[in-house]
Design a protein around this nucleic acid. Structure first.
Lengths: 145, 145
DNA sequence: AGCATACACTTGCATATTGCAAGTGCTTTG
DNA sequence: CAAAGCACTTGCAATATGCAAGTGTATGCT
């Protein structure tokens, strides 16, 4: 790889974010891990969008490399692997929820409950805390075996 | 195009958002129009990420089709074109700013001022209102000729 | 009017990324 | 010890991207 003038996607905050979530598969994996309690390769693979195995492996490695996921053996079964969200990923929750609120407003066939946007508007910190608690619950239960 | 089982990216709010900003170029165009006051093809093209002309034209059409941009003749020069953010795009501001706050925290070489995240945390509505006012200012000045 | 310039694309083509199907190697289970 | 589960790899065709060059229209200048 040769030296380039403007090789990095750091610096500008939007560009930094675009380098991570400006990819639909990373974006959806973040949803699965933060909102749907998914932690294993099989669970991610089972999402309705139908990611293919090579792309899944590639994105899991990318997210691990970016410090969003940690890769650990599954306590329930040594041959399996779990991916846990890091603090960096968890801190992305407010941004993810903001986008969902926006999507809920403009997607005419949204599946989000009508109460979702209202409760986030009313109590953002409380809504985020609720999701954080869910993440804690999933991770703690898993790590306890 | 044949009938498919799960063809649409609507429904799930995260998937809906991913269909729009889960593409780095759309993401950066949104930044340019919402935060940097850019409105013309030439201005978008001049961004430091170096989008190529075919991709720019493709994404401008995509964002227009998604109801994020309107395409209008430039009042200053009839042969030019302006792209204005719609209300849908403007309503994306809180999500965009949330992502920038997150990026500012985790990008070690961020160019964002240290005060940025703090002022958004202190007064989210006020920060968003400030950006909205900037957008109004740019659009009004342009449309007035 | 005639010529040059600016602008917003469009086209062609080489390269890079993606998606699907099938396979690989390791581990656990019966 | 054979079968099944799991997390990937690999091969290859399809798609998307990047770059350079070209196109058509609308000014601006002389």
């Amino acid at each position: 790889m040769t030296t380039r003038e403007k090789p990095d996607w750091n610096g500008c905050p939007t560009r930094y974010a675009a380098g991570i979530v400006g990819d639909k598969w990373c974006f959806l994996l973040l949803r699965d891990v933060l909102l749907h309690g998914k932690r294993t390769y099989r669970e991610f693979l089972a999402s309705p969008e139908g990611i293919s195995t090579n792309i899944l492996a590639n994105r899991l490695a990318k997210l691990e490399g970016l410090g969003m996921f940690t890769r650990e053996p599954d306590p329930r079964k040594a041959s399996s692997v779990c991916y846990f969200p890091t603090q960096k990923a968890r801190d992305f929750l407010p941004a993810l929820i903001s986008m969902m609120v926006w999507a809920t407003r403009y997607d005419e066939v949204t599946e989000a409950p009508a109460t979702f946007a209202a409760s986030f508007a009313k109590d953002p910190a409380g809504t985020i805390a609720w999701y954080e608690a869910e993440i804690d619950r999933v991770d703690h239960a898993l790590r306890a075996g």
